[in-house]
Write a protein that binds this DNA or RNA. Structure first.
Lengths: 239, 239
DNA sequence: CGGGTAGTTGATGGTCATCAAGGGGGGTGG
DNA sequence: CCACCCCCCTTGATGACCATCAACTACCCG
């Protein structure tokens, strides 16, 4: 993990994800305060930067790339609890240790804030706290959806739900992306750990969807959704 | 659902769960503000008081009893995302409609706040917002644990985890309850919907644990945990 | 006594995990 | 440049775990 001090005054001014992140609530005049406490890091693919159970010293803001968040059992079984896209805020653990691990899926850039600096910011900018509450509430809704998926949906329903989620991810509401073309940065193993399945089941299910004419599976990490309607029928629980 | 206006000045002063709830951050001198906007309701067992998808007009604070929170699929499959004990705050939906339903398990009393009154309170008492963020963060941690359970644990591991959670629920940390004696207010069906299992599997698993000498299953809703250690081995993933 | 709900236990089957084999792409080193 | 390896993915065969279907008991209330 490469760190570079955020001492430049324009560090946050030029940040492309600021409009989508919690930082957007800081007024332009106060942005320098933000830049003073932010440290940018680049995390290579596969590298972890939050260890489950370790002391929670920092908060993070993803500025580019995709991060996987996960919990693990002693024997190695792993559950990915979410993927964090640019703009996502990480580290909302109240206790003094992280309740989850975080690892870069592809090349990731994050802004790091120390816990104490963050507390100062919260004291000075009440809007920031409100924004964090909003962020946390959104995550709670997502978590509840995921619990429904993990507890009650079949493999096909899970994969369909996942593909639909990915189509809407990172897009403003009401937009449907570019013709259903997806570029998933994560491996089949990651998808499996996210959906509570095995690699083989994910692979088989995607193949089945391809045979049904619902999707096209391209090279690398490309998937094209051909029929959103069919996927929605599946995801809603008819499959 | 029976409503009674919270116009009494001592309404919140005498509230037994205030120390454990978000209301604790309101200074004694300002408690009247709280009492003005709170409306107490009594909800009989099995009655729902938050409907998934309905406009989110109110916030709730559980003052006695147990509430189940759930999401459902069109065909009736249901996932209980959590049980809310006294002191628990409900309704943290950012969007304008509830993302989940809520239903009384046993007889429940709740304090209801209208959304707009709550917003006023948040403006006047910044501490309240911080407390809510704390509450939301705790729920997120619980949600992540539940995702691990639903996605990666076996039936036995799930039931063991559930029983252990119930032993610690509603107790201050470091306390181990009264000799492992539990009084679960929810039915086998509720437990099944919470753990992503069926009624039969929950029942069979409890019978198996009884045969192993881990628990005693009493009449009604009583369960006595005889060996916390064995359950912990199971819950951690050796079963 | 009859009906309804909740729980337990048994028999059977389906869905998905596990075990196993093979293909394809990208990297490194000869 | 090609051989080699490793990782990721796919596909097949088998089996385990848990859902489903079903019967029965206990309990509560009218």
């Amino acid at each position: 993990m490469i760190g570079s001090g955020g001492v430049q005054a324009d560090f946050c001014t030029t940040c492309t994800v600021r409009p989508n992140s919690v930082c957007s609530v800081i007024e332009p005049g106060d942005i320098s305060r933000l830049a003073e406490v932010a440290v940018e890091s680049i995390v290579p693919p596969g590298r972890g930067f939050i260890e489950e159970g370790a002391p929670a010293t920092d908060f993070f803001n993803v500025t580019s790339g995709t991060v996987k968040l996960f919990k693990a059992l002693p024997d190695g079984r792993r559950q990915i609890t979410g993927f964090a896209a640019p703009g996502h805020f990480l580290g909302l653990a109240v206790s003094d240790s992280y309740a989850f691990g975080a690892e870069a899926v592809d090349t990731v850039r994050v802004c790091r804030f120390s816990r104490e600096k963050m507390t100062e910011l919260l004291d000075d900018f009440p809007k920031l706290e409100r924004r964090l509450l909003e962020e946390a509430s959104n995550e709670l809704v997502a978590a509840q959806n995921q619990m429904l998926l993990l507890g009650r949906k079949t493999a096909r329903e899970r994969v369909a739900s996942f593909l639909l989620d990915q189509m809407h991810a990172g897009l403003p509401p009401g937009q449907d992306g570019n013709g259903g073309r997806l570029h998933l940065p994560m491996t089949r193993g990651d998808i499996a750990d996210y959906l509570g399945l095995t690699i083989e089941t994910v692979s088989r299910t995607l193949s089945w969807m391809r045979a049904q004419g619902m999707i096209e599976v391209g090279k690398g990490y490309a998937i094209t959704v051909l029929s959103v309607a069919k996927l929605e029928v599946l995801a809603a629980g008819n499959g």
